[in-house]
């Protein structure tokens, strides 16, 4: 196996829009925090006047990045494959992470659908091992259910940890 052979499947394309909304919601508290901090910093006389606005500017740039290009980048780099013996996950646009989870180590498998995901008709598949969980974050509901069934049947081997 080499990095040149990524796992075969992409997530559902609707994931991009879902992530955009999530990122926009998630960016609100930090933006409010930055504005509040800028307000507080503005009241300290010893500090130069540009510190507060710069902080807000940085927060806005970060938020635009998170809502704009980031979800699409993440979608393009998120790939998965469900093999006979292992589940193969690859993610990350900057730090690329390739993870293999053997079927024999999977204790149980869930599909999870948050309220926003339900609106988009998406679901995530969560694989639990004795050393933590791994997630395939945004699949079409039918695909997710089928993936869950397939993983469950392949993983259904009684064995000690």
């Amino acid at each position: 196996m080499t990095p040149d052979q990524p796992p075969p499947n992409n997530l559902d394309p609707r994931a991009v829009a879902l992530w955009r909304i999530n990122a926009a919601l998630g960016a609100l508290p930090p933006l409010a925090g930055a504005a509040f901090a800028a307000f507080l910093l503005g009241r300290i006389d010893r500090l130069p006047a540009w510190v507060g606005p710069t902080l807000v500017g940085l927060a806005v740039v970060w938020a635009v990045w998170e809502v704009g290009p980031m979800p699409a980048l993440r979608w393009r780099t998120w790939r998965y494959g469900i093999g006979e013996r292992e589940v193969d996950l690859q993610r990350g646009w900057w730090t690329r992470t390739r993870t293999l989870v053997p079927m024999a180590r999977i204790q149980h498998v869930d599909t999870a659908r948050g309220p926003l995901q339900r609106r988009f008709g998406l679901a995530s598949v969560v694989l639990y091992t004795a050393a933590g969980a791994n997630e395939i974050p945004a699949l079409d509901e039918a695909t997710a259910a089928a993936a869950r069934e397939r993983i469950a049947s392949l993983a259904n081997v009684r064995e000690d940890l």
């Binding site: 796992p7 075969p8 499947n9 494959g81 469900i82 093999g83 006979e84 013996r85 292992e86 193969d88 293999l100 053997p102 024999a104 039918a142 695909t143 089928a146 993936a147 069934e149 397939r150 049947s153 392949l154 081997v157 064995e159």
Partner: peptide, 24 residues
Amino acid sequence: PRSDDARPHPPDSASVPQSPGFGG
């Protein structure tokens, strides 16, 4: 591979994408 790997594999659901022969 475990000794009980001879068990029949469950039928592959056509709608589920697979990666061929990974790890095997």
